[in-house]
């Protein structure tokens, strides 16, 4: 997990996303315990209230649940929940900004598709794009 203190995103949201990433990657499996809030705050030197806030975001979404006296566990079905949420925001978070940048650079949608399919860089087609 990485926390970027220079990011514009609040630390607690970054933490929630980092935990989600680990669940998606299978590092934190469903119905298993994750590291404690204390361990997170000490390791990343973040205020325990901030760390708690990040974890609580995931508790509210049903991704994590608290077992009294034991700690924080990954809910069953958590991975599916995160996948759905992330898929729903994929367009706004990734595609939209991709299209905006492409428009600035006069890269056509067709060229973007070519890049995605072919995985290579495109030739200079600035003449074509500026028409």
């Amino acid at each position: 997990m990485l926390i970027d203190f220079n990011s514009e995103k609040p630390i607690y949201l970054q933490l929630a996303e980092a935990i989600e990433d680990n669940i998606l990657k299978g590092i934190f499996e469903e119905e298993t315990q994750i590291v404690s809030t204390t361990e997170i705050s000490v390791k990343y030197r973040i205020n325990p209230a901030t760390a708690g806030k990040g974890v609580n975001v995931l508790v509210d979404e049903g991704v994590l649940y608290k077992k009294r006296g034991l700690g924080m566990f990954v809910s069953s079905g958590a991975k599916k929940k995160i996948l759905e949420k992330r898929r729903n925001s994929f367009y706004e978070e990734y595609v939209q900004s991709l299209l905006e940048e492409a428009a600035k650079l006069s890269i056509s949608k067709e060229d973007i598709v070519k890049m995605i399919v072919g995985g290579n860089r495109i030739e200079d087609n600035s003449n074509k794009g500026s028409k």
Partner: peptide, 28 residues
């Protein structure tokens, strides 16, 4: 800072840190 956070987590208390090194304490 790590010991301070561990100490606080173990037994929450009111802590006031007066410092010039602001960026360092901003996450703490």
């Amino acid at each position: 800072y790590k010991e301070l956070i561990a100490n606080y987590s173990e037994r929450p208390k009111t802590m006031i840190i007066s410092t010039h090194l602001i960026e360092e304490v901003s996450s703490v």
